[in-house]
Computed example of a mutant assay.
Amino acid sequence: MPNNIPLRFLPLFLTINVIIALALVAPAWSNELNQISQDTKLTYHGGALLTKQRTINIFLVWYGAFSPKDRTTIDNFFASLSPDEGSGRAGQEPAVSTWWKAISSYKDKAGNPVPCTVKVVKQLDDAYSLGKNLKRAQIANYIQSKIASKTLPLDSNVVYFVLTAKDVKVERFCMGSCGFHDSIPVPGKGRLAYSHVGDPSVQCPGLCAWPYAVPAYGPPGRPLLAPNGIGADGMVINIATVLAGAATNPFKTGYFQGDALAPLEAVTACPGIFGAGAYPGYPGDLKVDKGSKASYNAFGASGGKFLLPAIWDPMSSQCEVIA
């Protein structure tokens, strides 16, 4: 059974919105959220992390049709993760790279930290070769076949990302998952991490692009304006969540709380928290662009602006927001 990142990743959306439906008084839930954060404790289970090299290599598969604008947004986000690019040309803070640097506090049993550098090594376009309805097992088999044919490189410190377009339906996507990570066996290399994130803009924006879209239930409220578009910004939030989980718990033996098959991980342990003062239904205090009125909390490469979720800090044992 795959490692369901959202799995609890839907607390970003499902759990939060169920709670919202039960109560409308926000301040009371602020205390509840603080209690959840205090009760969360990710345990290191002694397994491997993505610490074999100084860089986590990313191989991207663009499955289906993506707009050039959305591709540029996601490319810029990946470029922003590394220290040399993360704060953009103007050196603005808080930066995407600063957010990712928090992951380096996760260390393996030898004391090696998760690398601060993330690099997209290769990208592959696929025009619906498996159709528009995919099972999770097909995604795993797809990655294995591309490695076997040498279409995708073989690497020991890698995450193979399959990104699906808005018209592609993936098993359990929008039904209990906004993305997931798991691993596949590769002869001579043990197991390698792979993941899936889909474009939620058509299928479930209120679930997998919150707070840039609102669900059909819960108290009334307006969604925030997305700096790059609901689909792309929803994918960025989910890519960030999945990548953090894959780096710190790639084989279900790293850092997590709860059931190994449905764990709370580095980001999913902090559901729905994006800024200070967050509570269920309210993402927290964010920056707002003066011109577009779009909300965000981090600067990236090429002037990009992104919204990134809180990360559970193993040093402070708390959910930390970028600031």
Rank of each mutant, 00 (worst) to 15 (best):
P185V: 02
L224F: 10
D125Y: 09
R136G: 01
Y128W: 10
Y160F: 11
C178P: 00
A193N: 07
G206V: 13
A216C: 03
L124F: 12
V162I: 13
K146A: 06
S177E: 13
D182G: 03
P200Q: 06
V121Y: 05
D167F: 09
C208A: 11
A140D: 04
P219F: 07
P200H: 10
S149Q: 08
Y212T: 04
Q138S: 14
D126P: 02
A193G: 09
D126N: 10
I184W: 02
G176P: 05
K132C: 02
D126W: 05
G131W: 09
P200Y: 06
V170L: 02
H196N: 10
P227Y: 07
E171N: 08
G190P: 06
K135Q: 15
V118Y: 08
L152Q: 04
G218S: 09
R172I: 11
S104Q: 10
K189C: 03
N228G: 14
P153E: 05
R172K: 14
V158S: 07
L207N: 08
G179Y: 04
Y217R: 12
A165Q: 07
G221R: 15
L163H: 03
L152C: 03
D199C: 01
L130M: 14
T151R: 11
P215R: 10
P219G: 14
K135Y: 04
V121G: 01
A165T: 12
L152I: 04
G176S: 11
R136D: 10
H181W: 05
V214W: 09
A165M: 07
V168G: 00
P215H: 09
